[in-house]
Design a protein around this nucleic acid. Sequence first.
DNA 1: CTCGATCCCTGGACGC
DNA 2: TGCGTCCAGGGATCGA
Length: 317
Amino acid sequence: MPELPEVETVARGLQAAVAGRRILSVTLRKTDFIDDPAAIERELPGRHIVRIERFGKFMLLQLANRVAIATPAGMLVETTSEPVTEALLVHLGMTGHLAPHAAEQPLAKHTHVTFTLDDGRELRYTDARRFGRMAYLAGAALSSELERFGADPLHVTSDEFARRINVSKARIKALLLDQSVLRGVGNIYADESLWKAKIHPNRIGALLSPAELEALRKELRKILLKAIELRGSSISDFVDAGGIPGDYQQHHKVYGREGQACSRCGTKVKRIIVAGRSSHFCPQCQPAPRTARGPRRALRRSQKKTKRNRRRATSKR
DNA sequence: CTCGATCCCTGGACGC
DNA sequence: TGCGTCCAGGGATCGA
């Protein structure tokens, strides 16, 4: 599941592989995940892919009419120095892949978009679940779209991080996942950073101490950088633009480790639902808040969920 | 403002 | 082998 490190990995791969190429033609198949399919068919043919950047969990394929000089590969930790005025936004959702292929290579299942490039290759987007998103945006529409998102967790200052988290009565897990607070953090890295900073996912943002906030910011940043170094976590079917999986999943301390021993204290890792998402934590290292938001509520929720699934199952028949 | 509920979607795991 | 069922989850949206 692509979060910031995985998207960064794919973006770097694409920057090396297709930056500078011109798009000759576009073929769309399923389009229900595309904001305005006609705009893509109309605007992309003839455009050059100037460079590929990551923005939160999005990739921005910056476009231009003329050839521009591509930045060297590997220098791609998100830059905002030059204004982007025209871009294809790609969100990989859960199962999206964007990668170049030889034209003669057969189409993989669930290939929904093909861009034919001027060197004969094809840039193909595949996405089994179609939880991804694609949009062509330019000018004011592009900037206002990007403004909806919060700070980049790699570059956010202590002050801004504290300001964004500390004013909210929402739970810290929900805040970490909220793309308008921080852009790019998903379930894996939220759980991992909370474990490392010894903060329970149900804690209220406004009630975290300055020391806890700073620990969280630093650990989150360290974890994300390490994960980028290892080219992301491959837990379902994530692979980079060259088809190579990442290695960070071997470093997960709590995510996907329910029932296993906490590597710090040996207590069994627990899983609860917070903000509608699985949350993995160590009940010993990450003490629960005193408020009534703890196990009882989680229990009630899981009972409801069971009922809902039963209802859904019966109504289908 | 914050929350839960619901929907989108399909592959994979699991039970029988 | 095969079928039914459940589950995973990011994000949008709606109503409480």
